[in-house]
Design a protein around this nucleic acid. Structure first.
Lengths: 133, 133
DNA sequence: CGTAGTCGATTACGCATGTAAACGATGGAG
DNA sequence: CTCCATCGTTTACATGCGTAATCGACTACG
């Protein structure tokens, strides 16, 4: 082992791209799946070929976002990072970049731009009540 | 004019990259500015050279995110897209990608991950009251 | 036992991005 | 009038991403 990466636990998760994210969504919904099964879920809507899905899966494995488990001659893929974690880091990224790290301005912005439906508002009110209890 | 782009109003704004965004922030704060002045604001913190800033400014002009106004032999740059618009589209992108277009789950997520301070919560409550009136 | 289908791995290729140096025009100093 | 500093523009190059074809291995069918 001339140059093995330490890799103990100090690696922040590598950034997942847009196309890769679509693949992750499928596997967050159900896993483990084979490449072909993933393709069944995403190839049609995104106009991809199976080859594309295979590439994305490989890259995600390299990025340590997916784990593989051999099943006969093929692999089963499953997420190694929880959706919560991904969603959390992406949200924080946005809040940091655009709102100086404060969540309230984001909320204010959504409110002002009619991005909030009646239902949203009701739901958020409910959440607030819970938070205060 | 063999092939003039219609360009009337049907062009959705081109995507602004991360590095470009840093430049935009400077100009959103104060404008118009020269390339050198922009550099004064961002080169130090990001470890950039003036050349890099020049490239980013050019690309932003191409993307129609900046307008130029000649001032002697140099240019003054100012934003053509409002910060509000940019922030809005980026926020919507995130909400669409991660929360199925609904803002409430985003809020729920922020709440659960302790991303909301006391102040945030108070502010949001206030905003909610306003919304309902 | 050979052959066709299927797998993951390798290679490809164009465009965007981050980062910057080189170049040509030009205006101001001497 | 000449030369240097300074513009914006052009060119450069590595990396990442989107999208995919090709390749070598293997398995299942005939």
């Amino acid at each position: 082992m001339s140059e093995s990466a330490p890799l103990q636990s100090g690696d922040q998760p590598e950034r997942i791209s847009d196309a890769e994210h679509a693949v992750m969504e499928v596997l967050w919904q159900r896993s483990p799946l084979t490449a072909a099964e993933v393709c069944e879920q995403v190839c049609e809507p995104r106009g991809w070929s199976l080859a594309t899905v295979k590439t994305l899966l490989s890259r995600l494995v390299t990025k340590q976002a997916l784990a593989t488990e051999p099943d006969g001659k093929r692999f089963l893929y499953s997420p190694r990072v929880a959706r919560e974690a991904y969603v959390g880091s992406e949200s924080r990224r946005l809040v940091d970049r655009l709102f100086g790290g404060r969540a309230a301005p984001l909320f204010a912005h959504l409110a002002e731009s009619d991005a909030l439906t009646e239902d949203d508002i009701a739901e958020i009110e409910a959440l607030l009540k819970e938070l205060k209890s």
